[in-house]
Design a protein around this nucleic acid. Structure first.
Lengths: 135, 135
DNA sequence: TTAATATATGAACATCCGTTCAGATATTCA
DNA sequence: TGAATATCTGAACGGATGTTCATATATTAA
C-alpha cells in the first residue's frame, strides 16, 4: 500500500521517501489544494504585462481610466477590462467622481509584491529567461 | 495631436492629464514593455497550483521527482513537465545523482516572493485562509 | 543481456485568457 | 433636449497552457 500504486496505478518504486516512510512528513508542509489555487489566482492576475504596467502607474498616484489608456497607448476598453480583473482580485480600488473613475492600489501589499518581484528580476542574469537551468 | 487621436483614432477627450500635459510625467514611471513582459513571465510561472505546491515542498529540502509526484499524488510525467517550467524560469535547480534528479529552490528570492504572496493572501478578506495562510 | 526504475519530452486535447468590436449606461455640456 | 465624453460589458477570435498518453533515454538490478 503506497500512494502511487493506490491512486495512480504506478508500480511501487524505491524512492527514499517511501523506504523511510517520510511521505506524511513532507506532506505536512505541502500547500493545500485550496490555498494553492488561491495563490495561483493572485499570481495569475499579476501575470500580465498590461496589468503590471497599470500597477506601475498606480504605484504613485491615482489615475482615471482614460489617462491610463493614454499612457499605455491602449484602448479604454482594453484597460477597463484589465482594471476589472485587478478590482475583482482586490489589487486596486476606485472612486467615482462624476463620469470619471479614479483607480488606485488597494493596499501596500500589492506594492510590496510588485517591488519584491522587480527585485527578483534584477537578480536574473540577462533579465530574460534563458533555456535550461543555471550556469 | 495627442496620443489617442494619433494612435487609436480616439477623439480628443478632456481627461485632466491632457489638459495639464502631464502624460510624459506619468509615462516616466511606467514599466517598459520589455520589463513588463519579463515580470509577467515570472508571475506566470508562479501562477499554477501545482508549481506553487512544488515550491512549498522544496521550501525546506531538496526532493527527487518521484517523491514530489507522490506527495502531490500526480504522475511523475506531469511533475516533470512543471519542474521543467520552474527550471527554465530559474526558480529551481537540480542535481543528478544516478538515475535520480534532486530538485531545490534556486535562490532565496523565490522563497521571499512565495512567503510575501502568502502574506498578501492572509490579508484578503474574502480569500480562503487555510492552515498555511498566515505565518 | 533483460527487466525494472527514474526522468524527460513531443503531440494532442480541452480549457483559459487578452484583445477587439459593438453596444450599453451614465454624466456633462451646449 | 441632443451631442459628446467616460466607462463598462458581452461575444468572439486567436493564442497560450496544463495534463494525459505514448515513448525515449539512462541508470540500476537480476
Amino acid at each position: 500500500m503506497n500512494i502511487r500504486s493506490d491512486i495512480h496505478g504506478y508500480p511501487a518504486g524505491s524512492c527514499h521517501l517511501y523506504r523511510t516512510g517520510a511521505v506524511a512528513q513532507i506532506q505536512e508542509r505541502l500547500l493545500s489544494s485550496g490555498d494553492a489555487r488561491d495563490l495561483a489566482d493572485l499570481f495569475q492576475v499579476m501575470a500580465d504585462p498590461t496589468r503590471l504596467r497599470i500597477i506601475s502607474l498606480l504605484a504613485e498616484t491615482e489615475l482615471c481610466v482614460c489617462d491610463i489608456a493614454a499612457a499605455l497607448e491602449m484602448t479604454p476598453s482594453a484597460v477597463s477590462h484589465q482594471l476589472r480583473v485587478l478590482r475583482m482580485a482586490q489589487l486596486v480600488k476606485f472612486r467615482k467622481e462624476g463620469r470619471m473613475a479614479y483607480y488606485s492600489l488597494d493596499d501596500d501589499h500589492v506594492l510590496k509584491l510588485y517591488t519584491q518581484s522587480l527585485d527578483h528580476l534584477g537578480h536574473m542574469p540577462g533579465g530574460a529567461i534563458g533555456p535550461l537551468g543555471k550556469s
